[in-house]
């Protein structure tokens, strides 16, 4: 379990990083926290010719608020974001979801943007970005483009990032809703979820439900429903529509049943939060 050889480059600034990507494209991989990429390299499942290490770029190690959005730079670790003092007030859903990302030790190095870039169908941060209507900031030599979450993650481990683009930040809109809840079912503490469900109450009887682990990317839906039975019915319909992934740990039917069982519970948990 030793990586194949590669060139290692540690650029001094984003421009250098972007220039390297322009020159090397697909042959290069961006290394930030390395919590997914390094494991992939150790298993020899990828063969990049170059690693571009952005973990030391101070200009990307920032959490900024502006235009009603919280912008998290590409080298901000998950634990740094978790410790950001305004998290619970500005992004209450993320405050609930971030502790489920990996473990203390992996959050110390794993980055917020890296997890979103990796685009695992059951991981928490892509679901959070989708739930909150966030966006991904991509830079290349051609300039900067901003993609909405739904346009960024296309499928399992697949995103709309072009090979010469660097994800410099993700942006989460400051949340006005205070009634939020999150639940996931995993085999062990800290594992990728079999299914992850997030709920935001928008107004009375109107809520947004996001689910990860059912398909190749997170799904977010708005519902007008009151009472467990109605929510359950809506979840059943959503399950039928999404079908559900099938793997060793859960059948598609089990995932649909989990969605049916837990959707009302998570909605009720959200409703219980002080508005």
């Amino acid at each position: 379990m030793k990586p194949r050889p590669f060139d290692y480059v540690c650029p001094d600034n984003v421009d250098e990083a972007v220039a390297l990507l322009a020159a090397h494209g697909d042959a290069a991989r961006v290394l930030a926290g390395g919590q997914s990429l390094m494991a992939i390299l150790n298993f020899r499942l990828a063969e990049p010719e170059m690693l571009i290490d952005v973990s030391r770029l101070a200009e990307l190690d920032t959490i900024r608020e502006g235009d009603g959005k919280i912008e998290v730079g590409a080298s901000v670790t998950q634990n740094k974001f978790l410790a950001w003092p305004a998290l619970a007030t500005k992004l209450p859903l993320l405050a609930k979801m971030l502790p489920f990302v990996g473990h203390f030790q992996t959050r110390n190095r794993g980055t917020v943007c890296g997890s979103i870039a990796h685009a695992d169908p059951s991981s928490e941060l892509p679901l959070a970005l989708a739930m909150l209507g966030g966006e991904v900031v991509l830079r290349s030599k051609k300039g900067t483009r901003v993609l909405a979450a739904k346009d960024f993650q296309l499928d399992m481990l697949t995103t709309a990032r072009e090979s010469e683009e660097l994800i410099t930040a993700v942006r989460f809109p400051v949340q006005s809703e205070k009634q939020v809840a999150f639940r996931e079912v995993a085999r062990r503490h800290g594992d990728f979820a079999i299914i992850a469900i997030a709920v935001v109450v928008e107004e009375k009887n109107k809520f947004r439900l996001g689910v990860g682990g059912m398909t190749g990317r997170p799904t977010v839906r708005q519902f007008n429903a009151t009472g467990d039975a109605a929510i359950r019915d809506a979840a059943v319909a959503l399950g039928v529509e999404l079908e559900g992934l099938e793997d060793m740990h859960a059948s598609a039917a089990m995932r649909r049943d989990l969605l049916r069982n837990l959707a009302p519970v998570v909605v009720n948990e959200a409703l219980q939060c002080a508005a």
Binding site: R188, H189, G190, D191, F192
Partner: peptide, 27 residues
């Protein structure tokens, strides 16, 4: 938790600690 799983062709499905589930303190 723990099980070594092979499919009907004999392919091995428990090849990492993400799929072969050693309990942590929480379990």
């Amino acid at each position: 938790y723990e099980e070594y799983v092979s499919d009907e062709s004999g392919a091995f499905l428990s090849g990492s600690f993400a799929d072969y589930l050693v309990p942590t303190v929480s379990e």
